[in-house]
Amino acid sequence: MRSAWLVIRKDLRAELRRPQAMIAMLFFGFLLLVILDVAVPAGTEITPETGAGILWVAITFSSVLGLGRSFDREKENHCLEGLLLSPLSPEGLFGAKMAVNCIFMGLAELAILPLFFILYGDAFLRSLPALALVLLLANSGFAATGTLFAAITAGADRNEALLPMLFFPLVMPLIAMAVRATGMIFAGAPLPEYSSWLQVMAAFTLIFTGLGFLVSRHIFRD
């Protein structure tokens, strides 16, 4: 646990010093929100379902940029090999990278959400507490799946192209559930109406987190 925390702290410090992943995620998220806002005719009322779709398009595409970079720092000078030579277990490394991805996604969302509420209506703002729960579950699921595939593709030459090709088809059910749950929350539905979506999202996250820990030893060692 301690070694994993050291890796998390190192990655957060490195990102603070040179915020490559965060800038890419925020820029892409902002750009998508603005483009979609321009595409919607003026005066058109955004339905809860459409609002949910727009929000998750921005979050999903900005997240994949961050996930793709989660092993970039370990590639320079073969630092990943340095970590694997240390007493840090492969499971600890997976857990650390998943936690870092989760934190980066959460920080990006903290910046993307205000712009979303400004552009698409502050009526959605009242849904924030329930939305936070959906974001937490979706972030964990994204981070588990994304870290797993980022680790698998870390050694590949063109992993920037490979990661989305592997990641998106698998994470599609999670995105669909997040959009559904968010749409219902924006429409003012009570928790029991969308709790089944949250339960399936939690199950998805648990399955891919468990899978990541189970296979990390095989991913990181030849």
Partner: peptide, 25 residues
């Protein structure tokens, strides 16, 4: 000691060694 430096370019010399020493407990 391999062919590769295994060093983080964006960390100082001291930070690199402290990080490694901490990992090894």
């Amino acid at each position: 000691i391999s062919h590769h430096a295994l060093l983080y370019d964006q960390m100082s010399a001291l930070e690199n060694l402290v990080f490694s020493a901490s990992l090894y407990g």
